[in-house]
Design a protein around this nucleic acid. Structure first.
Length: 578
RNA sequence: GCCACCUUAGCUCAGGGGUAGAGCACUCCCAUGGUAAGGGAGGGGUCUCGGGUUCAAAUCCCGAAGGUGGCUCCA
């Protein structure tokens, strides 16, 4: 059977598998109301309204029923029906959500199709679902499947609608492929940055500040290494640094438009009976600096970078380790330039992104988001800026995807999705063209013609949020950081405390070179010390005992290879290029 | 915010209507060691918080907070 399965389309198989799940659920709960059951990236799901809440123990029961249905090798039959017939049938079946869908399809003039499962021997009907397909010919063609988890989901994804119960599952051609996928999930769990953050003593969260991260000394080393590199690259790319206040008058946020568009995510406070807001974004501050003096075309472009700590009142349910927090540092920058300079500035930012992502071994994908329905600015402005953005990507020979209508209301943007070593993608950088903010703040520069002109503004972040980027790095490297960012780069392990003094002597050179080292002078066995250093994923272990003391050497054990080599401390420093 | 589940020692977790358990970590002692856990002793908990039921609640019920998996939203 696996051979035959290779021929069938994976999406069709997963979709068919979701129908089999629905049939199994109806066997278990005849009164279940069906929602929708589409294919998703790694599998499928199906939403149900059920008489009771599901428990994890229900999944094996459903899987068993599904296996029976697959074994029966039911045929999938497609049939087109009129809206009237469809509604009549669904009313009889008491499927209110499906009726809602049919009514909508009828309105938009879409065809209405059902897929029916029948027994292969006598065409006995087993299950019917409103569905566009495509499906397999028979349930027997379904390969290896597994139900993964139960979750709540709003009907049609709208929080005003009732919450249905969603069952997630996945399905592959072969058992081997399924196992490989399940292993990948396991591997991802092992790399969970919340778990590693605790184990490696990098950061913590506390009940007294949900969503507000606390960084420990080792976590701060990591962050400072990232920032040191960031500073170096920005200096080279011609950025100046600015810093703007965290709390600013509420009126400023009215002017910027954030109050109207974003107030439910903002924190507010009062100073001397006047309303103030904690910044959710950095731009208005930059605007004020720009307006500090009369700007000339001769001064443009102005590239101002700011490591801005912003606070956003995220809903409690969305908080997720460092990936989604309520206070975070954006590695922001605002570039003020003339319209003619847009292209060069965009290219400059693209090159900076390329360089910085490569440093961490990240592949990335660029997405161009175009004009949304709700937008400001003229058609010409949008056409021109979108055209410019297309051109820039082509001239830089970069591949990209288009996300129609997903731009910011003030301008189109590039989003950068980086892929980690497990192939998971994360949105980090964005680069946005903004014609609105300069308008709202009446920014000007004096042109060559002696007249005032409106500058264009670019917003961009590379890391996105330092906190999130750190979380991504933890998972990307699985906590085994490259030596240049590792909190502890080398640990010296004396074989016994007789060699503690020699260890200190060896450490002097590391200290001189600014290497981040530790000495484990605890009275543990060497085996234990090595184990502890392994668990902390320290890049290099320097074992010192009698032999090393005599030869004035260290025995270097490399975390990555687990191999050891005896050498002088100087040689180690050179080899590790620390 | 919504749905479901979870919350017992610093950490990972077992237990369970009748005075709280393990391993690791921590402290002390012995051992002075050669590439992933040497041995022993000891300290440590209002069982997240607030109500209720009960002779008795860590355990059952209700509520809150925090967390987890999703949904909606997003850097």
């Amino acid at each position: 059977m696996p051979k035959e399965n290779k021929k069938v389309d994976l999406d069709a198989m997963r979709h068919s598998c979701s129908h089999v799940l629905a049939q199994a659920v109806l066997q278990m709960f005849p009164e279940a109301k069906l929602g929708i059951g589409p294919t998703i990236e790694d599998g499928f799901y199906y939403d149900f309204e059920l008489p009771r809440t599901l428990i994890p123990e229900d999944l094996p029961i459903l899987e068993k029923k599904m296996k029976q249905i697959i074994k029966q090798d039911q045929k999938f039959l497609k049939k087109e029906v009129s809206p009237k017939e469809a509604i009549k049938f669904l009313k009889k079946a008491d499927q209110k959500y499906k009726i809602e869908l049919v009514k909508e399809f009828a309105k938009s003039g879409e065809k209405i199709t059902f897929y029916e499962n029948v027994m292969p021997q006598d065409n006995k009907p087993m299950f019917v679902d409103l569905c566009e397909g495509p499906h397999l010919d028979r349930t027997g063609q379904i390969g290896a499947f597994k139900l993964l988890k139960i979750a709540g989901a709003y009907w049609r994804g709208d929080e005003k609608n009732p919450m249905l119960q969603r069952i997630y599952g996945t399905c592959f051609h072969t058992k081997e492929e399924l196992d490989k996928y399940l292993k990948k999930i396991e591997e991802a769990k092992k790399r969970d940055h919340r778990k590693l953050g605790k184990e490696l003593d990098l950061f913590s969260f506390h009940e007294d500040g949900p969503g507000f991260p606390f960084f420990h000394p080792k976590g701060m080393i990591l962050i400072n290494q990232l920032l040191e590199y960031w500073h170096k690259e920005h200096k080279e790319a011609g950025y100046g640094l600015v810093s703007t206040p965290i709390i600013l008058r509420e009126s400023l946020w009215h002017q910027s438009g954030h109050y109207d568009n974003y107030k439910e995510h903002m924190y507010f406070t009062h100073i001397d009976d006047e309303g103030y807001a904690i910044k959710p974004m950095n731009c208005p501050g930059g605007m004020l600096i720009y307006k500090e003096r009369t700007r000339s075309y001769r001064h443009l472009p102005l590239r101002w970078a700011e490591l801005g700590l912003v606070h956003r009142h995220e809903k409690s349910g969305v908080l997720h380790g460092l990936f989604r927090v309520r206070s975070f540092t954006q590695d922001d920058a605002h570039i003020f330039c003339t319209e003619e300079q847009i292209k060069d500035e965009l290219k400059g930012v693209l090159r900076l992104f390329e360089k910085m992502y490569a440093k961490f071994g990240f592949e990335y994908m660029i997405e161009l988001s175009t004009r949304p329905e709700k937008s400001i600015g003229s058609d010409e402005m949008w056409d021109l800026s979108e055209k410019t953005m297309h051109e820039v990507l082509k001239e830089e020979k970069l591949d990209y995807e288009i996300n129609e209508g997903d731009g910011a209301f003030y301008g189109p943007k590039f989003d950068f999705h980086i892929a980690d070593c497990l192939g998971r993608t994360w949105q980090c950088g964005t680069l946005q063209l903004d014609f609105s903010m300069p308008e709202r703040f009446e920014l000007e520069y004096i042109g060559e013609d002696g007249n005032p002109h409106r500058p264009v503004m670019l917003h961009r972040v590379v890391y996105g949020s330092i906190e999130r980027f750190m979380g991504i790095l933890i998972e990307h490297y699985g906590g085994a950081f490259p030596a240049w960012i590792a909190p502890v780069q080398a640990i010296i392990l004396p074989v016994s405390d007789k060699f503690n003094d020699y260890a200190k002597k060896a450490a002097e050179k590391l200290y001189e070179k600014g290497i981040r080292y530790e000495i484990d002078d605890s009275s543990e066995t060497l085996g234990k010390k090595i184990r502890n250093a392994e668990l902390l994923k320290i890049p290099f272990m320097l074992v010192v005992g009698e032999k090393e003391q005599k030869g004035n050497t260290v025995a270097v054990r490399d975390y990555a290879t687990k191999k050891q080599k005896v050498m002088k401390v100087d040689e180690f420093i050179k080899m590790a290029s620390l």
